[in-house]
Structure formats: structure tokens, C-alpha cells
Design a protein around this nucleic acid. Structure first.
Length: 419
RNA sequence: CGGGGUGUGGCGCAGUUGGUAGCGCGCCGCGUUUGGGACGCGGAGGUCGUCCGUUCAAGUCGGAUCACCCCGACCA
């Protein structure tokens, strides 16, 4: 894409009223637009990042047999009455609305009940199970106080998967398979090294732990105790000797860290399936309960967490896998040969399928282009100038490095091929 | 929801004892510039969050209200 075709601009000033680094940088660089407290629109650059994250999540969910669907934002009251969760006294962060005739509706904050309800026509035999369905979409939660930019919004993007198993053993298998997929996802997103599977409270209806995926960050709202060697952690909320024994963790191996919850998985047992009358008939004709699991990943929150983790004084630093563009191509000056060379390189990169942003602005000095490339966090910078042209080369610099390299086009292509 | 703070051109801000709004960035035009956010000259752009009140006169004083931010509580 050409920079002159992108309607967003960058800003030198930090927006007043945003304290969170993720929101400050994402707004300055033109990724998001604040609509109101806790509600942000995704502009072209931001949407690209969001879609890249979604795609990685989608691929890994598909790889373990998840079937993608899309549930509705508007939800009928009756399915929620079956689990007594429509009541504000039970779930206090609902957004609710009404039909013209006065019928109360919920605005989706999670989807256990509707998903179970939707499966009723299709699941009745042991032959129909096991089964996992997931969706990636908006969630609405009426938080008393929005804060931390896109880390805690009232409207946010989440992937939620629900698994349905015939018995506990089968559930456990699905659960661990999903846990393994989560590890892959965080690795691919570039935060695997500092993201820990963290034991947490399983909820009031189960004796089991749930698992949170916590990525280390100073701005995190959670405190966890990490065993780096075992790559496991325990949330402060359940940090007791009894639980440490259950988890096989030793106090002296644990380090206290602040972290952001970027996903969680937890066992639901048969709470929702039973409540909504979703059962199956086994081989012997007996009616049986279905064991469920629920698996969330905060897609938009991850975007914010990654900004928080990797940003430096110059701006955002995206991991290559989710960057809106892999390369920022900059021509220095408007010398005819430089421009011609740049256009050819731009076309060649596009032909190779490389997502490239060419800063083709003619009235902007190089320093500003460099500063913008840094602020936007594009992982690779390629500069064409009279100087590089004299060597029939380009200058390459990684966002995370101070070192610049002079490369021929072939060398550049080789370098980005392994990106 | 409790406590604290802030609302003034697109963005960031200043505005004295009340006297009818200014700066920087950005934007438009012309010219000089072109390897780390250039410079000169000339422009455009604001019913000062909203409403009510006090006053000859309100960005400025009083009240209400809305919004935003911070701390706390809350966060399937």
C-alpha cells in the first residue's frame, strides 16, 4: 500500500486523557480511534493487526478440529433464565436492550447459553460427539470503569470456543489439546516466551482449577507466581500451600510477576448443558450429561498487551507475524532514478506477496518518514536513496536494531523470505 | 458506585483583579529545502462541553448537567 493512499496520519502529541501506553501509541500512530471510554474503533492499520491475530487464532483452532461459527450479539432472555444468569444481581455487567414491544434482550457478553441452545437440534447421540465450536467476534461488557486503553474495554474482540465431550476423560483430552494449541498461538504471536499457563480459580461450580494464559507486563492487573523452568504459574488469588502441592509447584522456585491475562480455558463440567437440556444418548440407549469446556482468547487485548510489552521510546514494535505491514519502503528524495528504482522494488515485493507500505509522500523529509516508520512499528525498513542507488542496493534496518545493512535486491528478497 | 482531577480551533496547551480569545503542532498557498520529525512569508479555522443564573459585560463568578482521566471497589 502507498502511504498517500492511507487516510490516517500520525501525531507528534500524546492524546490527553489517555494514560495507557497502548492507547497513546495506537492513537498517535493511527491504528485506533477512541469512540468513548472503553470503546475503540479500528482504523485500517489497526484492523490489519487485529485480522492477523484473528487468523493465527483461527488456524490453530481449526487445526484441533474447532468449527467456526458466529453467534449473535442480540440475545433472547429465555436461554439465560435457564441458568439464572440474566439477573443483574447474578451477572452485573450486562448491556441490555428492549424490542419495541418491550421484550428484554441481552447484548452478548459471553455465549455459553446461546451456543448450547444452538446445538440442541444437532446433538443427541454419542455419534455426534465430541465437538468443539468457536467464534471470533465482539463482546460487550458494562464495566463500571473502563481503563488501560484496549486492555479493558466495554466492547472488545474475543475468540471463544466451547467443547462438548461424552465423559470426563474425553473432556480432559480436548482440554489439553486446546492448551497445546494455545501455546502455539502465543508462540506465533511473538509472546510465547513470556506467556505462562497459570492455574487459577475454576469458579464456584467446580473443584478443578481453570487455566489462565498470562503474559508478563508491568501494566498487568494480575499478580502471578511463575516457575520459569516448568513454564507454569499460579495466580495470587489461589496462592496457597495446599494448591501448590496439588500443582506440584514449590514456593522457592516461584517468582512474583505482574501480568496481563491474554486467554483462559476452564472446565464447565455439565453445568450449562444440563441446565439447557443438552444431553446425548450413549451406546446402550441411556441419556448422559455432556461435559463442556470453555476457551477464551482476548484478541483485541492481545494487541494492546503486545504494544505494552515491546514498545520503545520511538513507538510501537510489532512482532513480524501480526504487523500491519512487514516492510516500510522509503525513498529519500525525489530524484527520478531513485523513484523509479523504488517503484520497481515496490512492485516486486508485492508480486512476492510481501505486505509493504511505501511511504511515497513527496513533500516529506526523510527524518519524518523514519520517525513514522518507527512509531508505526513496522518490523523492517528499506530505504532507497541516491547513495544506495550508486551501489545498486538498498539500505535495510530492522525496527529492533540500530544496525543498517546495504543489500542488493536479491539479498533483500532472501532476507525477507526467511522472515 | 465512592474519592480526586480535567473540558478553550483537528491535536497539545495558555488565558492575570470579569472588558468580547492566543501559542505550538497540524492544515492551505508561494518560495527555499531533502539521510532522523526543516525554514521564511502569507492564509483558513474557535457560539471557550451543555444548560440555567449573577453582572452593563462571563472562557473567567455561582449552580446544575454531560463527558473524559486517575485512585479505589468491581471484573463469567
Amino acid at each position: 500500500m502507498k502511504r498517500t493512499e492511507l487516510f490516517t496520519k500520525t501525531s507528534k502529541t500524546t492524546p490527553a486523557g489517555e494514560v495507557a501506553k497502548n492507547a497513546q501509541l495506537l492513537i498517535r500512530a493511527g491504528y485506533i480511534h477512541k469512540e468513548m471510554a472503553g470503546v475503540y474503533a479500528y482504523l485500517p492499520l489497526g484492523l490489519r493487526v487485529l485480522e492477523n491475530i484473528k487468523q493465527i487464532v483461527r488456524e490453530e483452532m481449526n487445526a484441533i478440529g474447532g468449527q467456526e461459527l458466529s453467534m449473535t450479539v442480540l440475545q433472547p432472555r429465555d436461554v439465560w433464565e435457564k441458568t439464572n444468569r440474566f439477573d443483574d444481581a447474578v451477572v452485573d455487567n450486562w448491556f441490555k436492550t428492549k424490542l419495541k414491544d418491550g421484550t428484554e434482550l441481552g447484548v452478548g457478553l459471553t455465549h455459553e447459553e446461546p451456543v448450547v441452545d444452538a446445538l440442541i437440534p444437532y446433538v443427541s447421540s454419542y455419534k455426534d460427539l465430541p465437538l468443539s465450536v468457536y467464534q471470533i467476534g465482539p463482546k460487550f461488557r458494562n464495566e463500571l470503569r473502563a481503563k488501560s486503553g484496549i486492555l479493558r474495554g466495554r466492547e472488545f474482540v474475543m475468540k471463544d470456543m466451547y467443547s462438548f465431550a461424552r465423559n470426563q476423560a474425553e473432556h480432559d483430552e480436548l482440554y489439553e489439546k486446546t492448551a497445546a494449541a494455545y501455546t502455539k498461538i502465543y508462540d506465533r504471536l511473538g509472546i510465547g516466551a513470556e506467556t505462562y499457563r497459570t492455574a487459577a480459580d475454576g469458579g464456584y461450580f467446580t473443584e478443578r482449577f481453570s487455566d489462565e494464559y498470562q503474559t508478563l507486563s508491568d501494566v498487568g492487573e494480575d499478580t502471578i507466581y511463575v516457575d520459569k523452568a516448568k513454564k507454569l504459574a499460579i495466580n495470587k488469588e489461589i496462592y496457597t500451600d495446599e494448591n501448590l502441592v496439588k500443582l506440584g509447584l514449590n514456593r522457592q522456585d516461584l517468582v512474583e510477576e505482574k501480568s496481563v491475562e491474554v486467554g483462559n480455558i476452564f472446565p464447565l463440567e455439565s453445568k450449562y448443558s444440563d441446565a439447557l437440556d443438552l444431553y446425548y444418548t450413549d451406546e446402550r440407549g441411556q441419556r448422559q450429561s455432556i461435559i463442556m469446556g470453555c476457551y477464551g482468547i482476548g484478541v483485541s487485548r492481545i494487541m494492546g498487551a503486545i504494544v505494552e510489552k515491546f514498545a520503545d521510546e520511538q513507538g510501537i514494535v510489532w512482532p513480524v507475524a501480526i504487523a500491519p505491514f512487514k516492510i516500510c519502503l522509503i525513498n529519500v528524495g525525489t530524484d527520478e532514478n531513485v523513484v523509479k528504482f523504488t517503484i520497481n522494488l515496490y512492485k516486486k515485493l508485492q508480486e512476492k506477496g510481501v505486505e509493504v507500505l511505501w511511504d511515497d509522500r513527496v513533500d516529506v523529509r526523510p527524518g519524518e518518514k523514519f520517525a513514522d516508520a518507527d512509531l508505526m512499528g513496522i518490523p523492517h525498513r528499506v530505504v532507497v536513496s541516491a547513495k544506495t542507488l550508486a551501489q545498486n542496493s538498498v539500505e535495510y534496518k530492522a525496527r529492533t536494531s540500530e544496525e543498517t545493512l546495504i543489500l542488493t535486491i536479491d539479498e533483500l528478497l532472501k532476507k525477507i523470505a526467511c522472515i
